[in-house]
Simulated assay, not measured.
Amino acid sequence: MPVESNSGRGATRNPTPTRFNLKEHFVEADWLDEVEALDGVPKRRTTVTIERPKSILTRNSSPDIGFDRSINAYRGCEHGCIYCFARPTHAFHDLSPGVDFESRLFVKPDAAQLLHAALSRPGYECRPIAMGTNTDPYQPIEDRWRITRSVIELLLETRHPFTITTKSDRVLRDLDLLKPAAELGIASVALSVTSLDTKVARTLEPRAPQPRKRLAAVKALNAAGVPCYVAIAPVVPQITDHELEHIVQAAVEAGAPGGFYLPVRLPHEVAPLFRAWLEEHYPDRASKVMATIHSLRGGRDNDPNFFSRMRGQGPWAELIRTRFEIAAKKYGLRNVKFPLRTDLFRPPEGNQMRLL
């Protein structure tokens, strides 16, 4: 049988996970996955598996992250961003961090109910909840499952502060919830814009909305009173770094009150996938890109240390920081976060969620 076609995917490979000593295995595909394309190669289809976790809040104590709890309604992400640092999490399920990560998805339909239980516990201390920290809460399957929306409904009902990070203009579909939440001072959004070049974006993030749509969403959210920042994340040296100033300018023109940047990170299985992607799309500069990343990461593919992992180190890191600061000053982009209120929180009433 011909190998599945990965056309339209970010990863060019689908390696078997080895970090957890899992054995290679073959799984019978759904009959839809067997449909032959015109060239005789079966087209890989997206599959969805329901996941029933016992809890939905993920806690962290990292000193370089501005939140201590997060919610991820989905596992895996159809956007297919080649650089995504969440890819290695698929190996825990005996699935590949490559194409499996962007085509074998998991959904958590009980997310709102689990959050309801967590917020109802005696002694719960209110702090902002971050969404979109691992996989995108507005990836295409949100259209059908609407799990992110159900979580926001509960957060608005209980007046609990939250932040959203996404690459999708689908966030506008929940403007009817985000606007009243922003009026209460409990919501903010960050739209990730990595490149303004549609060709580059199509290879880096093949199934994410085009940059113009994201900037349009930034403009629409801020016009509606929802503070929406722009995240230039990640900055990929020799691929997108030359656009840094242009993205800052575009962010300000779209009404973003602030923004930030993050250099690319290549933890665990992401590094070989990224190398394979470079050889496929940028063979002329692949070695130069990796050499620059090593300069940023202390001679390695990835720097896992607190603080330096977010900014990089060495001359290249200093150059990117200086360029961003000069551009931000020139165009008026503030590097501040919207202060979210925690004093309005009211625990859920009873076992059922209130109607708005």
Rank of each mutant, 00 (worst) to 15 (best):
E4P: 12
S7W: 06
G8C: 07
R9Y: 06
T12E: 12
R13Y: 06
P15S: 13
T18F: 05
F20H: 12
K23V: 14
E24F: 06
H25W: 13
H25N: 07
A29W: 01
D30Y: 03
W31P: 05
D39T: 13
D39E: 14
V41I: 02
R45K: 13
R45A: 10
K54P: 02
S55W: 08
I56M: 13
L57V: 10
T58A: 02
S61R: 10
I65Y: 03
D68E: 10
A73Q: 11
Y74D: 01
R75A: 04
E78L: 06
E78D: 08
C81D: 06
F85E: 09
R87E: 11
H90I: 00
F92W: 11
D100E: 03
S103N: 15
F106P: 02
F106I: 06
V107L: 13
D110K: 08
A111G: 08
A118Y: 02
L119Y: 07
S120M: 10
R127Q: 15
G132I: 00
G132H: 05
T133Y: 02
T133L: 00
T135R: 09
D136R: 10
Q139H: 02
Q139N: 04
D143P: 05
S150E: 12
E157F: 00
E157S: 15
R159I: 03
T163E: 12
T163G: 10
I164V: 15
T165E: 09
K167P: 09
S168Y: 01
L172P: 15
L178I: 06
A181D: 09
E183A: 07
E183D: 14
G185Q: 11
I186S: 07
L191V: 08
A201I: 01
T203G: 00
R207T: 00
R207C: 00
P211K: 10
L215D: 08
L215I: 12
L215C: 07
V218M: 08
V218T: 13
V218I: 12
A220F: 00
L221K: 09
A224Y: 07
G225P: 14
G225S: 11
V226H: 14
V226A: 04
Y229L: 08
A231P: 00
A233E: 11
V235E: 06
I239F: 00
T240I: 02
H242I: 03
H242Y: 11
E243N: 07
E243S: 08
L244A: 14
H246M: 10
H246W: 11
H246R: 15
V248L: 01
A250F: 02
V252H: 02
V252S: 08
E253D: 15
E253F: 00
E253Y: 03
Y261C: 11
V270W: 08
A271E: 15
L273H: 10
L273P: 14
A276S: 14
W277T: 02
E280Y: 10
E280G: 03
Y282H: 14
D284N: 14
T292Y: 07
S295E: 15
G298L: 14
G299D: 14
R300M: 06
N302Q: 10
N305E: 13
F307S: 06
R311V: 14
A317W: 09
L319M: 11
R321N: 12
T322E: 11
T322K: 15
F324R: 09
K329G: 07
V336F: 10
R341A: 03
D343T: 08
P347I: 08
P348L: 03
P348D: 04
Q352E: 14
Q352T: 15
R354Y: 00
L355W: 12
L356E: 13
